[in-house]
């Protein structure tokens, strides 16, 4: 946790874990899609399920899906803005199993794409994404995160690492998981700077790569969403 994460975030109240953290998980879910979501299904687990209304968790989650950051003064009116933006959303309560008490599963779709993730708000507004689609994952939004889905073949991770190294991009953390041997895998890399778009384009055209996405760093500044 960085010093500015301890004294921070600057945020709309009332709860860093239930409001700001929730907003950030939704921001990352939003970033998994290339374009705006049309439909959202939000399943609340544990403390998120029990005390969500009192903490504005529902508002914060919808705000994040609208690409609002935790300090955005539109957050308390997120439901109204969602209506204006034609975002359909539904909340439900679900036991997501062995995850942190403040967790949510977000499923999003638009005309082209469908994604889901599970994120946990682990305290003070800090978050951790633990699942993306069918894969275990591990990234926090504190860095630019590169997600690459690929066929489970020898050398794919080395290849991605090589491309980043050749472009002087340092890897802070790396997590990889596969659904089964020889099946599909997803790696999440937290990296120290944002790669140029041609690098991402190059990666997406490498052999065995089936999907890739660049997620913004969301803890300090505002980033653009399409």
């Amino acid at each position: 946790m960085g010093l500015l994460d301890v004294i921070g975030p600057v945020m709309i109240g009332p709860s860093s874990s239930h409001t700001a953290g929730a907003c950030r998980i939704a921001l990352l879910a939003r970033a998994l899609l290339e374009h705006k979501p049309k439909k959202a299904n939000l399943e609340l687990h544990g403390s998120f399920a029990k005390t969500s209304k009192g903490h504005g968790t529902n508002l914060a989650l919808v705000a994040g899906l609208l690409a609002y950051y935790p300090d955005d003064e539109r957050l308390p009116k997120a439901f109204d803005y969602a209506q204006k933006e034609n975002l359909e959303y539904a909340f439900s309560i679900k036991d997501l199993g062995n995850v942190h008490p403040n967790s949510v599963k977000i499923s999003l779709e638009n005309d082209n794409e469908k994604i889901c993730l599970i994120g946990s708000s682990i305290g003070g507004g800090n978050i951790q994404i633990v699942k993306v689609n069918q894969f275990d994952a591990n990234f926090t939004g504190s860095y630019f995160s590169l997600l690459v889905e690929h066929e489970d073949q020898t050398g794919v991770i080395a290849k991605i690492a090589r491309v980043l190294a050749d472009n002087y991009i340092n890897i802070a953390t790396l997590y990889s998981a596969r659904n089964k041997r020889g099946g599909k895998a997803l790696m999440s890399l937290e990296i120290d700077k944002k790669p140029d778009s041609y690098i991402l384009d190059y990666i997406s055209h490498l052999p065995y790569i089936t999907w890739s996405r660049m997620l913004p760093e969301i803890m300090t500044g505002q980033n653009d969403f399409k």
Binding site: I7, V10, M11, I12, G13, P14, S15, A20, G123
Partner: peptide, 21 residues
């Protein structure tokens, strides 16, 4: 109280404990 009104505050380290520091 600003926090409880959904106003803008600085979590330090959390929002619920934002007033102390």
């Amino acid at each position: 109280e600003e926090n409880a009104r959904m106003g803008k505050i600085v979590a330090a380290p959390t929002a619920g404990s934002a007033g102390t520091l």
